[in-house]
Amino acid sequence: MRVTADTALAEYAAAVMPWLLRDPVRNNQLLTLLQSRLDGVVLPESELLMLRVVDEGGAVAAVAVRPPPFAMLLSDLPDEAVPPLAAHLAGGGQRVTRFTGPPEQTGRLAAALAGRAGGRASMLAAYRMFEICEVSPPAGVTGRPREAAGADRDQLVAWSAAFQREALADHPRTDPAAPIDGRLALGGLLWVWEAGGEPVAMTAMTAPAAGVVRINLVYTPPRRRANGYASALVAAVSRAALAAGLRPVLFTDLANPTSNKIYQAIGYRPVQDTGMWEVG
């Protein structure tokens, strides 16, 4: 096997997306990453690292993309793909130290890189992907869901920044307005729960990629918590996505028992685990 590094997003996407589309749920993060940049929802980074591992016949065997400054996102990695990918990364010009993908496979890659550099590989976080097919909304939650509007923008940007500080403390900081402005521009991707005439919680979903949408940016300000707003909002948005013929998924941090509990209570079921590894 060998590693090919692409520099043109359109060419790379054309080469790897048919392979990723064989399992659009498990590969949703990679598909969304590429599709959002193809569609202009996210501006392609000048140093976007796009790799594919191919077999002797040129067929794709694994996909690896790193949108700086974040971790490299990995597809399933067959054992024979690990050595050439580790060798390429060790000798490449862009230093990559964090990787997210299937836990054991990603761990093997991190260990191979650490061995080459004389360092160590450590797992930083564990996540779980869930999918929902039938929604069981929580009962007795006051208020209603509605699509976010331009008038909500400043409040939601502030909540986006708070979400980063709280839920993504170990991740690089990004412009908190970007996920809000991008979704508001597209429409239908950003929602709030309204109670007492004002927004009290928010959530978002990614633009559909092969019929799959990912629920994220779930946030309730501290003084509004313990009222069921986030659960009710995620349930409502998930139901709307299912009604539109889409497949909603989401990720939870396995270190957060609350999120794992509330999403399963409304009908989300586990699909796969993901690990973030660091080489240092």
Rank of each mutant, 00 (worst) to 15 (best):
A59M: 05
L109I: 13
R22D: 14
A151G: 15
T100P: 00
R239I: 06
A158G: 10
F163E: 08
P138W: 06
L254T: 15
V141N: 03
S136A: 14
P248V: 06
G211D: 11
G58I: 10
F251H: 12
T174P: 00
V96K: 02
A230T: 09
R120Y: 06
L168P: 02
A161R: 12
T252K: 01
D253K: 00
G119K: 09
G57T: 14
L190H: 11
E80H: 13
R26W: 13
L74K: 02
M1W: 07
S238G: 15
I132G: 04
L217D: 07
E47C: 02
Q155K: 07
V192M: 02
T174I: 12
A195P: 01
P138V: 07
A243H: 14
T274G: 05
D181N: 13
A110R: 04
T174H: 08
V25D: 10
A177T: 07
L89Y: 12
Q155G: 13
T100Y: 10
E11F: 00
I262E: 04
A86R: 04
R269H: 09
A210G: 09
E104K: 03
M129A: 10
F130C: 01
V16Y: 00
R225G: 12
T206W: 03
G187S: 10
A13K: 00
G228K: 02
R247D: 10
T174G: 11
M123G: 10
L31K: 01
A209D: 07
L190V: 02
A126E: 14
A207S: 10
L168C: 11
G93P: 04
V96D: 10
A149S: 14
S259V: 13
A226W: 11
A177N: 07
R183L: 04
L34P: 00
T106M: 07
A61Y: 02
P102Y: 12
W19F: 09
R22L: 12
A61N: 02
A241K: 02
E134S: 13
L38M: 13
L43D: 15
L217Q: 09
A149I: 14
G211V: 08
L246Q: 14
V237E: 08
L217T: 03
P24H: 07
M1Y: 06
G140P: 03
